[in-house]
Design a protein around this nucleic acid. Structure first.
Lengths: 225, 225
DNA sequence: CATCGCTCGATTGCATGCAATCTATCGAGA
DNA sequence: TCTCGATAGATTGCATGCAATCGAGCGATG
């Protein structure tokens, strides 16, 4: 998934990144002319990028009314985590029976680097942890051997707030998450599918209330405006 | 998901339908100018539709080389059915604990009409069965209460050959499929999530070898050209 | 004779112009 | 004063033109 060369692809990457990192807030309006101007291209590639993002679920587009950054209710976030628990749990079980030594070695590297980045240093490197965490979960999903699962996970994980998970974690919750990664790796290394699936479900479902709670707070604050 | 009004949306619907019903064969090249001419619109809405279909996985698009109808290997089809068994099994279990009487009544209507369409008449109405089957599975998924599951299923089910399932069925296999629908409805009506999940998994996984086998035959035939 | 390079036709990618639609503001009437 | 309607500005949707890139076919060369 390297950044391709065309203008439309660059615009797509820029907008996607901006949506995920919060540059474009949920609900923000994305006008074609504004974006074209600020990005130095014409409206055509911008339109193309907006339609792609719309069909991938990051934007809500209304005919003749333009595109807005999609917002997610607390209920939808809960549903996302239910599906993640199901799909990633399945992936972990299958990965446990299929991983190669090279896979395990790479995963171990990722987990170790995460533990370092989350370690006792004064300020954990959230961006790095987020990136490593995504790579680790991606490695599990890939190791499941199901060639369509990575694609399918992308339609779930691209939800902006999910990529901000670690910003919402307390130090204790962060340490718990790191321990779960380590145990997941242990279960996969042991080749125990039931153990791996259970740990993965715990890992995902224990993150769920943090995200859903944050969404509830946001909704409450929005109602009181 | 009613057909919207714009030209781009009409082109999208036309192409999608054409891909699913085989008008555009797997691997067929879809040129912008050709389509624009034959559909009586300019290249702009055609491009838009092609990009959408590409990002939804129905087309494989290469930069500067245009779009082709995506082909699926037997392995990918097997992976799709594994994920369907997982996701629809989950949906059936949840539906069993949440359906309303109105849901059950609507599902019963669908199943009964399918049985009629597949009945002892000389030529079962395959198109009708396919449509009713899609509606029934959609009803189960919707009744699961997970608001994102329908979206997610769409990224799996849009694979062309899957929509042709019933064309590949023998009369005996067809009757078996109808019995499974009826038993699934029984399980959901009884409110038994484990039973419903098991029946759904049987239903999906018993269809799997038929589709995968057909794909293997196609691949073999292609190699021998 | 095979292989490499080149030119030309075809196709995609991007920019721009115009028509259609929507939103917001202002004004008339009850 | 409030509501409804009309007009104007802004924005999206579509068509078209031009530049960039790709692929096929021909010719030159080892």
């Amino acid at each position: 998934m390297v950044p391709r060369s065309g203008s439309a692809d660059r615009v797509y990457d820029t907008l996607r990144q901006g949506i995920l990192d919060g540059t474009y807030a949920p609900g923000a309006r994305l006008g074609e002319a504004d974006l074209a101007d600020s990005l130095g291209v014409s409206r055509t590639p911008v339109r193309e990028a907006l339609r792609r993002l719309g069909s991938e679920g990051l934007l809500a587009t209304l005919p003749n009314k333009g595109a807005r950054v999609r917002t997610w209710t607390a209920g939808e976030l809960g549903d996302i985590f239910d599906l993640r628990a199901l799909l990633e749990g399945h992936a972990a079980a299958r990965a446990a029976t299929r991983v190669t030594d090279a896979d395990i070695s790479a995963m171990n590297d990722l987990v170790t680097r995460m533990e370092t980045a989350a370690g006792e240093g004064v300020s954990p490197d959230i961006d790095l942890i987020t990136e490593l965490n995504g790579a680790f979960h991606g490695a599990i999903v890939t190791a499941s051997g199901n060639s369509l699962l990575p694609e399918l996970m992308n339609s779930l994980i691209h939800v902006p707030v999910v990529s901000h998970t670690y910003r919402l974690y307390s130090p204790a919750r962060m340490r718990q998450s790191m321990r779960q990664h380590r145990e997941l790796l242990d279960a996969v290394t042991a080749g125990d599918p039931a153990w791996a699936e259970a740990v993965m479900r715990v890992h995902v479902l224990s993150a769920r209330p943090v995200l859903v709670g944050a969404a509830h707070d946001t909704e409450r604050a929005a109602r009181e405006l």
